[in-house]
C-alpha cells in the first residue's frame, strides 16, 4: 500500500495491516505516536528507552492485531500494550537513575531540582500508580478513557487516581518547603 494513505479509514488500514502491510500499520500508529511516547517517557523517564519501548510495543501490537475487536478504538488498546512493554523494561527498577543535564543558571537550578524531584517521586510510586498518574495528568485522559485503557471501571479508575495522588502529595510539600 503506497501513496494516498491519508484517505484510508482506520478500518481499511487495519485490514491492510492484518495482511502484513507495514506502511498501513505505521499510518495507523501515526496519530497515537505522541501519546504512546508520552506514556513511555512518563513511565521510564528516558527518551531513548521510551522510543525503544514504543517500537517494541508497535511490533507486539502488529502481531496481536487480530485480537483487536472490530469497532474498538486503537488508542487505548495500543497504549495498554505500550504500558505493558514499559512494565517489562522497568522491571526491578525501583530507583532508576535520572539523567539530568547541569542547569544553566542558579534560578534554573531551582526549577530543574523541583522537576527532577517530582520525577523521582513518580519513580518511587508503584508501577500501576505511576501509570495512572501519567495517563491522568500527563496525557490529560478523562476517567472513562483511563478505564478503557486499563480494563477497569471508570469508578475504579477514579479511585486509583485518588490513591496515587495521595501518595504523591508529600513530595509537593517537600518542594514547597525547600525552595
Amino acid at each position: 500500500m503506497h501513496g494516498s494513505l491519508f484517505s484510508h479509514t482506520e478500518a481499511e488500514l487495519i485490514k491492510a495491516a492484518r495482511q502484513g502491510d507495514g506502511s498501513a500499520f505505521a499510518e495507523l500508529l501515526r496519530p497515537q505516536y505522541q501519546s504512546a511516547f508520552r506514556v513511555a517517557y512518563g513511565l521510564l523517564h528516558d527518551s531513548d528507552e521510551a522510543e525503544d519501548a514504543v517500537q517494541e510495543a508497535a511490533f507486539k501490537a502488529w502481531r496481536r492485531l487480530g485480537n483487536l475487536r472490530e469497532g474498538s478504538s486503537l488508542r487505548p488498546w495500543f497504549l495498554a500494550i505500550v504500558a505493558n512493554q514499559c512494565r517489562n523494561v522497568g522491571r526491578s527498577k525501583w530507583w532508576t537513575v535520572l539523567k539530568t543535564e547541569p542547569p544553566e543558571s542558579e534560578a534554573a537550578a531551582v526549577d530543574v531540582a523541583a522537576g527532577v524531584d517530582l520525577r523521582r517521586a513518580l519513580l518511587r510510586l508503584s508501577y500501576d500508580e505511576r501509570l495512572i498518574v501519567v495517563l491522568r495528568y500527563y496525557l490529560d485522559m478523562p476517567f472513562e478513557e483511563i478505564a478503557t485503557t486499563l480494563g477497569i471501571s471508570p469508578k475504579a479508575a477514579r479511585n486509583r487516581v485518588e490513591r496515587a495522588v495521595h501518595r504523591l502529595r508529600p513530595i509537593v510539600q517537600i518542594q514547597g518547603a525547600a525552595v
Binding site: 502484513g20 507495514g22 505516536y33 511516547f37 522510543e51 502488529w62 502481531r63 509537593v172
Partner: peptide, 30 residues
C-alpha cells in the same frame, strides 16, 4: 507540575524510524 516535570517531545525522527522499522521487519499478525 507533572507537565512541567515531564514535558518532552519524541526525539527528532522517532516516528520515521518506527515507520522504517515496521516496513523492514514485516510481521504477519496472528
Amino acid at each position: 507540575r507533572i507537565h512541567a516535570a515531564l514535558e518532552v517531545q519524541p526525539p527528532a525522527g522517532a516516528y520515521e524510524r518506527l515507520r522504517v522499522a515496521l516496513n523492514q521487519r514485516p510481521v504477519k499478525p496472528s
